[in-house]
């Protein structure tokens, strides 16, 4: 589905990603851990194609196509979808209208989808106008359900969400990734969908809801420590990122500490 080769990315003059190699197979969900400023969000923004992120070296191959320099809407039309952490408010644009546009010409049952994320009362409101943290997440999920991407990029799906909303968002994320409708038969459930996911998480709460296949830690613009996501989470919970740093220092021979990470992403 996605192949990232030796990706270097600058924000302005500053190099934030320093050679990322990553493959995500069809139907696979990949979890990205890492402290603030490590470059996780930069990777997501670069994959989506945001203007402020300049690829200086390397390649992004999606469904066999080089999209390294493709415009954002083309990536969206090819099937990449992203949930935003802090989406902008657009005055005068009704949520229902945007959800319909997310279908990219397909008929979208806006009301039906909205019910699933408990968002019917917001359809008539301007998109993101005065939405709380949990409401933003539900609105992003709703747009993704209408968009039906083949590769979903989740930027910290659990941030700013209370427990009650977390269950709903977790379940929706799972349905998006697994392509499972509620009340789906076992036979269908076994035949997993082709939807892939790349999830950034701080806390790991999302792991309670989605079937994650692989995970890795990002540090200072590089990926390291590939493992089962749950093992990574256990490790970080027990030792913090400090322990990861020591491990990384040993590998690279550099002396690293947390203070060397700037809030770059």
């Amino acid at each position: 589905m996605l192949e990232i080769k030796n990706l270097h990315v600058n924000i302005g003059d500053k190099e934030v990603l320093k050679g990322i190699d990553l493959v995500i197979e069809d139907g696979e969900t990949f979890i990205l851990f890492g402290p603030n400023g490590s470059g996780k969000t930069t990777l997501l923004m670069t994959l989506m194609g945001f203007g402020n992120y300049t690829v200086t070296e390397g390649q992004i191959i999606y469904k066999g196509q080089d999209i390294t320099y493709a415009p954002m809407y083309e990536r969206a039309r090819l099937g990449i979808g992203m949930s935003f952490q802090r989406p902008p408010t657009i005055h005068g644009l009704k949520t229902s209208h945007l959800v319909r546009m997310c279908g990219q010409g397909r008929d979208v049952d806006v009301e039906g989808l909205a019910k699933k994320v408990n968002f019917s009362n917001f359809l008539d409101r301007d998109i993101n106008a005065g939405f709380s943290g949990g409401e933003i997440k539900r609105s992003e999920m709703l747009q993704l359900m209408a968009q039906r991407p083949d590769l979903v990029l989740f930027d910290e799906p659990e941030s700013g969400v209370d427990l009650e909303n977390m269950a709903l968002i977790g379940k929706t994320a799972r349905n998006l990734l697994d392509g499972l409708a509620e009340g789906c038969t076992m036979k269908k459930a076994i035949k997993r969908s082709n939807t892939s996911g790349l999830i950034i998480t701080h806390t790991g709460h999302i792991l309670e809801y989605v079937n994650a296949d692989r995970g890795q830690v990002m540090y200072n613009g590089k990926l390291c420590c590939e493992a089962n996501p749950r093992d990574i989470l256990d490790h970080i919970s027990n030792h913090g990122y400090q322990e990861c740093l020591r491990c990384l220092s040993a590998e690279t021979g550099e002396i690293l500490d947390l203070s060397s990470f700037n809030e770059a992403s």
Partner: peptide, 29 residues
């Protein structure tokens, strides 16, 4: 705002479509 244009482009609208959608919203009193 560029941020608003990019938000809509991430949903599959090209730059012109995104711009006119935002302008329509702006004028929609």
């Amino acid at each position: 705002a560029q941020e608003e244009i990019e938000y809509l482009m991430a949903r599959g609208l090209d730059e012109d479509e995104a711009t006119s959608t935002i302008v329509r919203g702006f004028l929609n009193v």
